[in-house]
Design a protein around this nucleic acid. Structure first.
Lengths: 336, 336
DNA sequence: GCGCGCTATGGAAGCGCTTCCATGAGCGGC
DNA sequence: GCCGCTCATGGAAGCGCTTCCATAGCGCGC
């Protein structure tokens, strides 16, 4: 009786057989009320908690394959677009999807540990996050295929966008719309943000101002925009690392009386819901494409661990709205 | 060998013992390469898929309690606010959270069936959805506590808001801001939408126009708003059943050249992210309160099935922004 | 050439539960 | 008052896997 109590402990304490305990726990008829109460009391006394694994094993039932998806589900609306097609694709392949919200690094590690330790899944989708080589090796050893989305990861098949090129495109569009002094509001240390920053520097030159936002949020964007404008009042366009940052910047500009797009143009990144209402021009991410690719890739790998899954680079496009100037030509979108 | 293959089948086919099969599957060292390959080949040939439950049972390890949360995770940003505090509260109680996205009725039933059949959780949180009495009985029989949030459900402890009163409050605020002819853009058949509609009718009178949106989305809102304005051009305020509907209505009004709030006032419901940027006045839901309550309630019930959990009615407040007129008094918010 | 230690492997004992089957007790009808 | 029933219950056999322990084979040193 060291460790958690089992039905044997309950049976002993209630003075009945284990079969009876099982009947009580499963709400079978044909158990005398007093027996039932005695068992229930014993359960309560001992703090009994049936073992899920044992129940499932004994009860039989199908052993459906399961894939876990880790993502910062509620940090932005990014998961909106990714998760739906992922769930749909996996359901079509007869695979269950379990979602884990990963707000921070520590949660990520804990979740991965648990997934590995409990052998809780047959496949893994990593959204907007990477794992180290040791982790990858652990999953390989456990024969659990892993695919990544929105974040490349050494040795893992991944669907990504070319963040550098995307940011270069953003700068190009701003230039074509008449911008002369373009600045960048960068995100944090995450790979995607670093790449966007590198893309900006490549396109706008090392001399162009770059201010990192404390956090990739509206507040962070507003604060960074304030710093930027104080230091470089002549800026006439800002390419931002995310929509949230861009909205913060837009608010800060409005606060200072700088009209967009006439006095200053602003470009976001992501194209989250409602950005069209806000009128933010932005770089649109292929979120649904990420989800669909991940579903297909992980399903293939689950079915056959040796399957060849090709990494893909999904296209982005610039959606021009009210925070950039109207193009001379009639086209409203630029793809790449 | 009827049914799924087991390690015995693999062992037989590869001409080895089951212990060796297990070693291969768990990447133990000390297995000759050729033996390993033979086992792997047998696995591939037979389409072997280890049984998760058996692995966990045999491997031992902790049997952490687990709560499942069902919600339309990605329909709106509602889950943003609910899930975070829910996850945090459960983590503090040592309980794992598993999220299930429920886009439609069928998925709900399928998920509940599976949860019940696989005894996959020790507790359930229902977000924005109800279950029938038979379902509730099934969970009661399985001794799985269920709590509801944002949607009352017979016999289940729930955290809700008073949708009727909330909508009445919205109408009152609009009136105080000078509205004379107030209309309602209703949502669908969901209980919350029906109650909001009833609250509107109670406050505005049976003669006040009500147009149901085909879907509680921007598109649905815009279309319904068009119908409303065609039929009642003299409307000077719209109380909407959701923010999405309100944004659609706002867009439609702009399209028709009706300025908000001067010509027409618009009130949303929810206070989703970015509504402040859009400037939408709206009824704010206590989303974080829902999550926190659910965590505490279900944790208490898991620990002690007999625990007394009191249903709560959480307060809502009206957040006045740019789609309603500036109040004469300096206060910007009204609570209830 | 024999024994030792090491490696690769098989056998078997559970993990905690569900459930089939058997047992015993109580009970109405003849 | 005995027989055949039904009802409540206990015993034991797995569910498919991991892992401890034992065993067989083998190369090496003396």
């Amino acid at each position: 009786m060291s460790g958690d109590p089992t039905i044997y402990d309950i049976a002993a304490r209630a003075g009945v057989g284990i079969a009876t305990v099982s009947r009580v726990l499963n709400a079978h008829p044909r158990v005398k009320v007093e027996t039932r109460d005695a068992v229930l009391k014993a359960c309560a006394d001992l703090g009994f908690r049936p073992n899920r694994a044992a129940r499932r094993l004994a009860a039989g039932g199908p052993n459906r394959p399961r894939v876990a998806a880790l993502a910062p589900l509620f940090a932005t609306a990014f998961a909106y677009g990714v998760t739906r097609p992922l769930a749909a694709g996996l359901a079509a392949a007869g695979i269950d999807l379990v979602l884990y919200d990963i707000p921070d690094r520590e949660t990520k590690q804990r979740t991965l540990d648990r997934l590995l330790g409990e052998r809780a899944c047959e496949g893994l989708v990593l959204c907007s996050m990477g794992i180290g080589p040791e982790r990858a090796a652990q999953f390989a050893a456990a024969r659990i295929p892993v695919v990544a989305v929105d974040h490349p990861c050494d040795g893992l098949p991944a669907a990504t966008i070319d963040n550098r090129a995307a940011m270069r495109l953003a700068v190009e569009v701003l230039r074509e719309r008449g911008a002369r002094r373009i600045a960048h509001l960068a995100g944090g240390d995450a790979l995607a943000y670093r790449e966007r920053r590198a893309g900006f520097v490549a396109a706008a030159g090392a001399a162009a101002p770059v201010v990192p936002a404390e956090t990739p949020t509206r507040e962070g964007g507003a604060a960074a925009c304030g710093i930027l404008l104080d230091a470089h009042p002549d800026i006439d366009a800002i390419a931002c690392a995310s929509d949230a940052i861009a909205v913060g910047a837009l608010e800060e500009c409005r606060r200072r009386g700088l009209a967009a797009p006439d006095r200053i143009q602003i470009m976001g990144f992501d194209d989250q819901p409602f950005m069209d209402v806000i009128g933010l021009s932005t770089v649109r991410q292929p979120v649904a494409g990420f989800g669909a690719w991940a579903a297909q890739a992980v399903a293939a790998l689950c079915a056959d661990p040796g399957a060849a899954v090709t990494p893909v680079l999904l296209p982005v496009s610039v959606v021009e709205r009210q925070t950039t100037r109207t193009p001379a030509a009639p086209s409203r979108r630029r793809g790449r």
